[in-house]
């Protein structure tokens, strides 16, 4: 069994970071509400009341802690997740087909027979070009939605090209 390119960890990390954005957005809204409370006095009043100021302060402090906790927790969990996911993402080209074994808790072992492979995509996004890797997607027949059946998040650029060539050769043999 082969391992992915080490930069695959960055792909896994960013998949955790995605979850942080909506959480930070909610926290930012709370902080904004706190700001509005302290800047605009309630109706009929010329000054912000003592209670409102205290409420606003509490909200700000809580939002600050929440943001800090989210960022630290997010960074730590993404690091742990990325390392574990990387260790447990293996692939190989066997006689039967391409096999992929992945998953930390819920394990998934897929075998994609060569005669089911339709087209092969090599993708290179921003991250991939910064860290010099390619993602490979293997599309199969009779598959609906939820991304490609065979997905290798990060392979060495040359390895990805070789892999595609090897798949093409095996497709033709039958």
């Amino acid at each position: 069994m082969q391992q992915l390119h080490p930069s695959a960890r960055w792909v896994f990390r960013t998949s955790v970071y995605q979850w942080l954005i909506p959480m930070l957005a909610i926290i930012a809204i709370v902080a904004f509400v706190a700001l509005v409370i302290v800047v605009f006095p309630s109706e009929g009043q010329t000054e912000v009341s003592q209670e409102d100021a205290a409420l606003s302060r509490t909200m700000m402090i809580l939002a600050g802690f929440a943001a800090l906790a989210t960022i630290i927790g997010g960074l730590l969990s993404s690091e742990v997740y990325a390392r574990m996911a990387y260790e447990r993402y293996l692939y190989d080209l066997t006689k039967e087909g391409l096999i992929i074994e992945r998953g930390i808790v819920w394990k998934k072992h897929v075998t994609i027979p060569y005669d089911r492979i339709q087209n092969v995509d090599i993708e290179r996004g921003i991250l991939a070009r910064l860290l010099n890797f390619s993602s490979v997607s293997i599309h199969t027949a009779g598959y609906s939605g939820g991304g490609p059946e065979g997905y290798l998040p990060a392979l060495d650029v040359a390895t990805a090209d070789q892999m595609r060539g090897a798949l093409l050769r095996r497709i033709q043999r039958r």
Binding site: I117, E123, L168, I171, Q172
Partner: peptide, 22 residues
């Protein structure tokens, strides 16, 4: 001879390989 390769994308670059057999 054996495949069609389509390259596209400015930032997210994709290279699709379609084996002619498919």
């Amino acid at each position: 001879q054996d495949s069609v390769v389509i390259r596209r994308g400015i930032i997210w670059q994709t290279e699709t390989m379609i084996p002619i057999q498919r």
